[in-house]
Each structure stands twice: as C-alpha cells, then as structure tokens.
Amino acid sequence: MAARPQMDHEMSIITNDLLEMTGLVEEAIRLAIKSLTEKDSELARNIINNDEEIDDLEDSIKDKCLKFLATQQPLAGDLRYMISIMQMVRDLERIGDHCEDIAKYTLRFENEEYMKQLIDIPRMAEMAAKMVKNAIDAFVNRDLRLARKVWKADEEVDELFRNIYDELMGMVDQDASRANQSVMFLFIAAHLERIADYATNICEETVFTMEGNYEME
C-alpha cells in the first residue's frame, strides 16, 4: 500500500483537535451541574466565560477541515470522515451552549434555597457527559458497536427525563409555590436531554463515516 503521509498527518491533527474539544465539552457538562448542585456562582461564571474557548475550537477545526478539503480533496471514506467532523464540531458547540444555559440557571438561584435535593438531574448529566465522550471515542476508534450502544442509551436519558417531569409536576400539584423552581429544574433537565440527543447525532455520524448510511439498528 502506498503511504499517504501528508493526508494521514493532517487527518490526525484534526482528530486530535476534535478530542480536545470533546474534553472541554465533557468537562463543561460536569462543571455546569456541579455549579448548580453546589450553588457555586463563580464556577458558573467561569463556564459562561469559557464557552468562547469551545466556540473558537469549533471555528479552528472547521477551518482546518476546509483547508483539508481544498488541498487534499479527500474521497469516499476520507470525505465522509471530514464531513462528519464538520457536523460533529457543530453538535459539540451546541452542547457547550446548553452548558452555558445551565450555568445561567445557577446564577438565577443564587439567593434561593432549593426546594429539594437534586438527585436525578446530576444523574442525567453524568449519563449525558458519558454519552458524549463515548460517542466521540466510537468515532475516533471506528467502533460501530459502541456507536450503536451509545445511540441506544438515549432511551434511558429520555426515561429519566420523563421521571423528572412527573416528579416536578407532582410537587407543583401539591404546592403551587414550587412552580417557579420546578419549571427551572425542568428546563435544566430539558437542556440535558438535548445534550444526549446531540450525542446520538454524533453516533449517527460514526455510522455514516463507516458505512455510508444512517442505519442505526
């Protein structure tokens, strides 16, 4: 097999950038929830400020992809790999935005006691963060089985979301003064649910890169 040193080298640089961005996003999910559960306003402000870093990485990766397409003119599997990365960095960037939004809720709660201890929301956040990491790992390692497994795991997140919904609505039914916090917690859970959806998009990109289609089952 003839080597393709230049092409492989540039692809590995872009892949490394993708991993770096994934690391930042995964951390943002965990820290956003940490700021919320620990009512840590300073941490929340950091998350809001650091989102720019994620945005910049997205731009820089897209720029590298563009230059790669222009100079290397990849085809078939290589082309699909690049198209997928361009799509995935968008998804990761959106996840970053959701984390920023969650951090903003922390600030809104700054001077309020929580009406209940947060249990399911951190669990949901942990699941979503793992999904994002595993989705990218599956892509980078070309692991179809893992991609499909993570894609499936979204059902559990949805299930948890429904439980949270039922619980919060039940609490409002009992005591209408809890409506304000309930709605905010529900919004936070909805952000996490979206994050898990983005992880499934990433899984779909892995299947697309490897198989050329979007058949997940």
Partner: peptide
Amino acid sequence: IFSNPANKKTEDYITGRFG
C-alpha cells in the same frame, strides 16, 4: 463511486491507499 463505493478495493484506490 466517489462518495460511497461498494467495493473495498475501489475505496482503497480512490483514496490513494494503493496504486
């Protein structure tokens, strides 16, 4: 052929992996 060829040999050729 250039986005999703059916045959592995085609893929390897057009992506410069041999030939």
